[in-house]
Structure formats: C-alpha cells, structure tokens
Design a protein around this nucleic acid. Structure first.
Lengths: 227, 227
DNA sequence: ACAGAGTCCCTAACGGCGTTAGGGACTCGT
DNA sequence: ACGAGTCCCTAACGCCGTTAGGGACTCTGT
C-alpha cells in the first residue's frame, strides 16, 4: 500500500544491479563469503527472488566476472607494440589486484563477458597492426592472458592472507623467506641459499621481469625491421 | 566388541590417508563436490572425526594440494637448459591436466608442499647450472610457474564443462568458434575474422607456442656462448 | 469492464555443508 | 588402579543453494 522506495512499477532489479551488488559483497566478504542470500540482501530482496533473474549462482558469477572486467581502460595507442602490450598487461594486473579475490573469480570461468571481449578485440587489432600474423596474434593474446592470470592468482592469495591475519605484505614476504631458510639445508640447499631471491624483489618487479622476457620472445616472431 | 576390520590399536587414519581419500573424492566428484563428509566416508569414518587430524577443510586442501604434486618426475638431466625446462613445464602441465580440477585446487594456495618444494629445488639447481644468476633463476621459476598454472586453469575449465555436458573437446572448441563468429561484426571485426585462429590450434600447440616464446626470452638473459 | 497472461517478489522448506561441544571406548605410563 | 592421552562417536549449530507454490501487481485483448 505505501509508495515504498520505488513505485514497484518497473523492474528496479536488473541483472546489472545484481552484478553490482555481487561486486560490493565480494569486496566486503570475499569470494568465500559471497552467497545468494547476501547478494539478495544487498539489493533489498530475499534469496529466492534472485532466481527470477538468474538461473544459478554460477550465472551470477558469470555476471560478476564481466563486471570485474569493466573499467579496464586500454592503454594509449602511442609507442611501439611493446609499450602497448606492456600497458595492457600492467593495467589488467592492476585491475585484478585492486578488487578483492578478483583473480579467483575470473580463474576457472570460460566464457568471456562483453567487457573482456572488447579488450581482446582491441588487443588483437594492435597485434595485427604491429605485424603479427593472425595465428600468432591469437596465440600471443592467449599467452599474455595466461601469464597475467596465473601471476595475479599466486600474488593475490598472500594478500588475502595478510588482510586476514592483519599483517602487511612485507611481513608475509619475510615469513615466506623464513620458511625457506628453515628447510633442511641438506635436502633443499638451493632453496635455503636463495631464500632472499625467491621472496625478495617486490611483486611488481617480478611481474615486470616475466613480462619483459615474454616480450623479448615475441619480438623474435617479427621481421627484423619491425623489431 | 567384534574385532572389526582393524584392531583399532594404531591410528589407521593418518593425514596421508586423508590426502589419498580426498584425492579419490576429487577424481569422482570434482572440487565442488569435495566435502568433509564425503572424505570421511571414504575412509570409513564420520565427518567430525576428521578434525582430530586436521584443523580445517582448508588444511585438508593443503594436504590435497601436496598430494596432487606427488608423482611428477623430473625430466632427465640430458640436453641443454632449454629442453630440460621444456620438459619440466610439459610434465607439470600434463600432471595437472590428468587430475580432475587439479588446477583449481592448486590455484589460490600459497604454501607449497614438500613435493612441490623438491621440484623447485631441482629446477633452481638446473637453472643455476645453466648460468642464470640467483636472482634471475628465482624469477624464471616464478614466471614458468605462473604460465603453466594460468594456462592449465583456462584449459581445464572447458574440459570440465565437456565432461558435464557429455560433449567432446573438439565440440567445445567448435562451439567457442561459433560464439566468436556470431558476434556483431561491426563491433568485433577482428574477433569475428579470427574466430578460427582463436579457437583452432589444439591446446598442446598453444601451450608449446607460449612456452617457446618464453624460452626465447630467457635465452637473452644468458651470455651468448651459453645461448 | 473484465478475464487472462505475464512479471516479480514472497514464505517455507528440502538436503547438504563446515564446524563445535561433549562424551565414550580404548591404550598406555605410573 | 588410575589418570592422561588418543581417536572416534552422536547431536546440534547456523549457513548454504535451490525448488515449490502462491500472492500482488501490471499489462493486453475482447
């Protein structure tokens, strides 16, 4: 009878709104704490109502997956292919890192959403423009995606642990180094000796290192005059 | 009163046995279907009893994580660093691919188990022997791990879907190509045009392609006489 | 104006989940 | 003989994803 908040005429609960709500719950409670009931509460509705808009929790996670990829702006179209590809990977990584558990959400999901499709389209276009063949460009895109995803996945778990335990990222790295040093030196001589190198350089540097190696490898695919 | 199966004297339920049981449940029901209750049933015990041997489900997953890494034999120490590194990555990937949902289990787990530590130790040893500096070797190990993990993660999800729907891997790839072709050609010209290249070559070839690019990039780190 | 279809949310309940509390049976050192 | 320790149990907690069925509302055709 009361006019309530909305007039209850139009939907007021779209799939887009669900994705945004899921995003907020994810940020607050993490992936493990993301339940249909909480997402429903976030939009002011009971859990069963979600099933009108979404077949499954799985489908809601697909929506969330695409929502997570929204807002990654493509790097400027200036500079050679190397700096553009580097820009892509850096932004991709930064974007995943910025949202809690983002890598885990994206991890096992096969169907790319519209947002990711647009990024792929743009990236493939630049690769073709740089002189890569169609077959090579497709593989390169796949390679870079696998690297970024795999890297952030390993990188983001300790961050989650650090948030949970209240310790900082530095402390987590130190603890990891300590674990390596504590191993039996006769069984793991290299791990013990290289404890600092294994945990030392910050993750930005490690990511950049791997990326530069990959880019070096890609350069060899191009005719010499295009680098 | 009856003698039962064992004489109930010694444990008969070790953490190792739990890990093996979890492995069997994982193979049968997948990661989503792996519950404390099922693992308990697998060892002939009720769920609550597991908490005597294990703090959490999380800790059980750590055990499972290490059990998954058991049995990856290191490649022979013949040939140059390239073939040895390639051997490592191929075996790592093959091993993950062979066990259902293995990539997802390993995915967000930070603490490497003893089995993985041994592999790292051996791999680092070979890298140092090949002429990589300690800092470079550590980064290379990290890079290769991220690539393999990221690749298999993307690769294994469609396989799971294929098992679920009963269709083969070939059909899944064809369906993916069809999805690309069905996109609006004015918005995604490259994706539409490159549908075949994006989904065409089999995953073995795609993995090998990325790996060779990475190895090419790594070669540049070494002084010319060591390749 | 009224019937029907369609939309969107509800309550109630299902079986399953991780986890905890508390207890019972058994083995051992003293 | 006894207490400590080990290893499993039953019972229950609150949460989860999902389904069935229904109620209120708006649109449409006649």
């Amino acid at each position: 009878m009361p006019a309530d908040e909305q007039d209850a005429a139009q939907p007021a609960l779209t799939r887009e709104a669900l994705a945004q709500a899921a995003l907020r719950v994810l940020e607050r409670d993490g992936l493990a704490g993301l339940s249909m009931r909480k997402v429903a509460a976030e939009v002011g509705v009971k859990a069963a109502s979600l099933y009108w808009h979404v077949r499954n929790k799985e489908e809601l996670l697909d929506l969330l997956n695409d929502a997570l990829m929204a807002g990654v702006e493509a790097p400027p179209r200036t500079g050679d292919w190397r700096v553009q590809l580097r820009g892509y990977c850096d932004r991709h990584r930064a974007h995943l890192l910025g949202r809690r558990d983002a890598a885990k959400v994206v991890a096992g999901r096969l169907a790319p959403g519209p947002n990711l499709l647009h990024l792929m389209e743009d990236q493939l276009d630049r690769l073709r423009g740089a002189g890569f063949s169609a077959a090579d460009a497709a593989m390169v895109s796949y390679l870079l995606g696998a690297y970024v995803q795999g890297f952030v996945l390993q990188e983001q778990s300790p961050m989650a642990a650090a948030e949970t335990t209240g310790t900082g990222r530095r402390a987590v790295a130190d603890a990891a180094a300590e674990r390596f040093r504590a191993l039996p030196a006769d069984e793991f001589p290299r791990l013990v000796a290289m404890a600092d190198e294994l945990t030392g350089p910050d993750l930005d540097a490690r990511f950049a290192f791997g990326l530069e190696r990959i880019l070096d490898g890609l350069a060899a695919l191009l005719p010499a005059e295009r680098r």
